[in-house]
Write a protein that binds this DNA or RNA. Structure first.
Length: 564
RNA sequence: GCGCCCGUAGCUCAGCUGGAUAGAGUGUCCGCCUCCGAAGCGGAAGGUCACAGGUUCAAAUCCUGUCGGGCGUACCA
C-alpha cells in the first residue's frame, strides 16, 4: 500500500513544490470519497488562494500524469482513488506474500530497547494492578521486537528495603503458625500484616525488624539471609505460574538486592559529578533548578542507608553499561511520575547525554468501585482469581455454544485469559480504570473474545475451502471491499505508531475496528461456492484478514484460536 | 497549599501532529439462524465535546482561567 502513498506524495511535491515531510496524506471522511486525502489549506495559505479552487486545479494537473490513480477535488480537499484492482492486488499481495512477517520493519535494526516491566514485590500477591505493568510492558516489548529492535525485558523484583526486615523477623517469630510451603504468598501476607499491627505498641518488634534489615544489608550470609532467600524463592515460584498463564517471559530477572554491591559506587559517582549536598543530615541532589516545587532526590538517609531512588540510579547506570540502550522504558504506574522525573533530573544535572532516552511509560491506576485498592484492608482483587473466573466463564460459553469443541479446556484458557489481557490493553495507557467484574467477564462487543471469534470464523472458512481455491483471483469483484483492504494495509503503520508512543491500545483499537469491518464484510460477501475467480479473490481477503488479526493478537500476547 | 494527569452519548471508551456531517461498544427498542460460526449482522433512539474566554481561514484537539475527579508532594517502595 505504501507504494501508492509514495507516488501520490511525490506527485504532489512535484506539482506544488512542497517539501517531503511537510505534509501528510489523511484518510477521507468516508470511504466513498477516496482512499487518501490531501487538504489544500496549506497551499491556500502559501499562495493566498481559495483552497477549493486550488484543489480543482491541482486535480487537473495531477491527473495528466497519473496512471491507475485518480485525483478528485471535493471542496477544499483533494482525494485520491486508486484503481480498485490495483489496490486489491497490491495489498493482498503484500500481506499474503509476507506471511507472519507482515508488519515487520527494519527501523529498529541495530538499536536496543530496555524495558522494565512487571516488577512485583516479593511476598505480596500479584493483584490486578500488577497485571497492567506486565501486560503493557510485554506488549511494548513485542512491538519493538516486530520492528527489528533488540529488546531486553527486565523484571526488576522488589526484594529489598526495610519491609523485608519486618518480614524476616515475622517469619522468625511466627513462621511455624502458617504453611509457607503450601500457601506461601497468603501466609507471608498474613505474617506481614500481623507484624505491622503488633509493632505499633511493641518497641521490641520494631527493633527486631530494624536489626534484621541491618543484618541483611551488611551482606552477612547467616540466618537472616537464609530466611530472606527462602521467601524470595517461594514468591518467584508463584509469580512464574502467573507469567506462564499470561505468556510472558523475561530476558533478565534481577532483584533490587542485586544492586547492593553497586550502591556505594553509584553514590560516589553522583557525588563526584558535584551535584550532591548535605541537607538535614541526609545526602541529596537538589533539583530546584527544574522548578521551585521539585523536591530533592534523596540518596542516603540520615542513618546512612539507601533508598529506592539510590537503587534505581544504580540500576539505570548498570543497564546503560550493559546494553547501551536507545530507549530505556520504565513501565510503572503513574503514581510514580515524580520519582522518575527526579531520576531523570539527576541524570540531567550530571550532564549525562543519554538522559532523554530514559522514559517513564506510566499507566493509570486501577480502582475498585469502593475506592483505591489496599492490600492491608483486604480491598484487593487477586490476579489469579480474575483469570480463573474468566476462564470458567469462557468454558461455560463453550459448553453451551460449541459442546463438541476439541481441547475445550485449552481454548477456554486462551479465551478467558485473552479477555482479561485485551481488556487491560484496550484503553489509553494513562487512563485510570475502574475494575468492574461484569466488564472484565464480558465477551461481547469491544472485547478480546470478539476479535478471537472473528479470527476463528475466518479460519473456519479457510478450512472449508478447496485446496488451491485461492488461485486465479478476479480482483474486480473486490470493488466494494476497498475499505477493508485499506484498513488491513494500514497495519504496519499502526504498529509503528504504537511502538513509538509505547501505546498498545493503538493495536487493540485497531483490531476491534478491523474485526468489526471483517464481520460485516463476511455478512455481505459470501466466500465459498461462488464462481471460482470470485471465491479465489474473497478467500484471499479472508486469509489476509486472518493473518493480520493473528499477528495483532500475537503482539498483544493474546491467543488466536482457530476455533472456539 | 503546591505540582502533574484527566473531564466526549445513561454507562465504558475512540477521535492520529488543529481540517470535511464528533464515532464505536454497552444498555434500551426493532429486525435477521432452510446459505461459509448468532461470542455475529442490520436498523432506531441517544451529544451545548465540564464551563468561560483566547489564538486560527479552521478547535473535542493548542493557550489562559473556573469548577469537578485522580495521583503525588525529602529520609516507604
Amino acid at each position: 500500500m505504501q507504494q501508492f502513498i509514495d507516488s501520490i506524495e511525490a506527485a504532489i511535491q512535484e506539482a506544488t513544490g512542497l517539501e517531503a515531510g511537510s505534509f501528510k496524506l489523511e484518510k477521507p471522511r468516508n470511504a466513498a470519497m477516496g482512499d487518501f486525502a490531501f487538504p489544500c489549506f496549506l497551499l491556500a495559505k502559501r499562495d493566498k488562494g481559495n483552497p477549493a479552487k486550488i484543489a480543482g486545479e491541482l486535480a487537473a494537473k495531477l491527473n495528466e500524469n497519473f496512471d491507475g490513480i485518480e485525483a478528485i477535488a471535493t471542496g477544499p480537499y483533494l482525494n485520491f482513488k486508486v484503481r480498485r484492482t490495483d489496490l486489491a492486488k497490491a495489498i493482498l499481495g503484500d500481506i499474503l506474500g509476507q506471511g507472519a512477517s507482515f508488519g515487520n520493519s527494519k527501523q529498529g535494526e541495530g538499536k536496543t530497547v530496555v524495558i522494565d516491566l512487571s516488577s512485583p514485590n516479593i511476598a505480596k500477591p500479584m493483584s490486578v494492578g500488577h497485571l497492567r505493568s506486565t501486560v503493557i510492558g510485554a506488549a511494548i516489548q513485542r512491538l519493538h521486537d516486530k520492528l527489528g529492535y533488540k529488546t531486553v525485558g527486565i523484571n526488576h523484583i522488589g526484594d529489598w528495603g526495610s519491609q523485608f526486615g519486618k518480614l524476616v523477623a515475622a517469619v522468625d517469630r511466627w513462621g511455624d503458625t502458617v504453611d509457607l510451603e503450601k500457601d506461601p504468598i497468603p501466609s507471608l501476607l498474613k505474617l506481614y500484616v500481623r507484624y505491622h499491627e503488633e509493632e505499633e505498641g511493641d518497641p521490641e518488634l520494631q527493633e527486631a525488624a530494624r536489626e534484621a534489615f541491618r543484618e541483611l544489608e551488611s551482606g552477612k550470609d547467616g540466618h537472616v539471609r537464609g530466611i530472606w532467600r527462602n521467601l524470595t524463592e517461594l514468591s518467584m515460584k508463584e509469580f512464574d505460574r502467573t507469567y506462564a498463564r499470561l505468556n510472558v517471559t523475561f530476558d533478565e530477572v534481577r532483584g533490587e538486592s542485586y544492586y547492593e554491591d553497586h550502591l556505594d559506587a553509584t553514590v560516589d559517582r553522583i557525588v563526584a559529578a558535584g551535584v550532591t549536598e548535605e541537607s538535614q543530615g541526609a545526602l541529596i541532589v537538589n533539583l530546584e533548578q527544574f522548578g521551585e516545587h521539585v523536591p530533592p532526590c534523596l540518596l542516603r538517609k540520615t542513618d546512612g542507608t539507601t533508598l529506592y531512588a539510590t537503587r534505581d540510579m544504580a540500576a539505570v547506570f548498570h543497564r546503560h553499561e550493559l546494553y547501551n540502550f536507545d530507549r530505556c522504558l520504565y513501565v510503572v504506574g503513574g503514581d510514580q511520575r515524580l520519582h522518575f522525573q527526579q531520576l531523570k533530573h539527576v541524570l540531567d544535572r550530571m550532564d549525562i547525554d543519554w538522559e532523554s532516552r530514559v522514559e517513564h511509560i506510566d499507566f493509570g491506576m486501577l480502582r475498585l468501585p469502593e475506592g483505591k485498592m489496599s492490600t492491608r484492608q483486604g480491598k484487593v482483587v487477586f490476579l489469579e482469581d480474575v483469570l480463573d473466573r474468566a476462564v470458567e466463564e469462557a468454558r461455560k460459553i463453550i459448553d453451551e455454544k460449541n459442546p463438541d469443541l476439541e481441547s475445550a479446556g485449552e481454548i477456554a484458557e486462551m479465551v478467558g485469559v485473552g479477555a482479561v489481557v485485551f481488556n487491560d490493553l484496550k484503553r489509553e495507557r494513562t487512563k485510570d480504570i475502574e475494575f468492574v467484574w461484569s466488564e472484565v467477564l464480558s465477551f461481547e462487543g469491544d472485547t478480546g473474545p470478539y476479535v478471537q471469534y472473528t479470527h476463528a470464523r475466518l479460519a473456519s472458512i479457510l478450512r472449508k475451502a478447496e485446496p488451491g481455491a485461492m488461485e486465479n483471483a478476479d480482483y474486480a469483484c473486490l470493488e466494494e471491499s476497498s475499505a477493508l483492504l485499506l484498513t488491513m494495509g494500514n497495519f504496519p503503520a499502526v504498529l509503528q505508531r504504537a511502538a513509538t508512543k509505547a501505546e498498545p491500545s493503538e493495536v487493540t483499537q485497531y483490531l476491534l475496528a478491523l474485526a468489526r469491518e471483517v464481520n460485516s464484510w463476511i455478512a455481505a460477501n459470501r466466500v465459498l461456492g461462488q464462481e471460482a475467480p470470485t471465491t479465489a479473490a474473497r478467500l484471499q481477503v479472508v486469509a489476509a484478514a486472518r493473518q493480520t488479526i493473528n499477528i495483532g493478537l500475537g503482539v498483544l500476547g493474546v491467543g488466536a484460536p482457530d476455533s472456539m
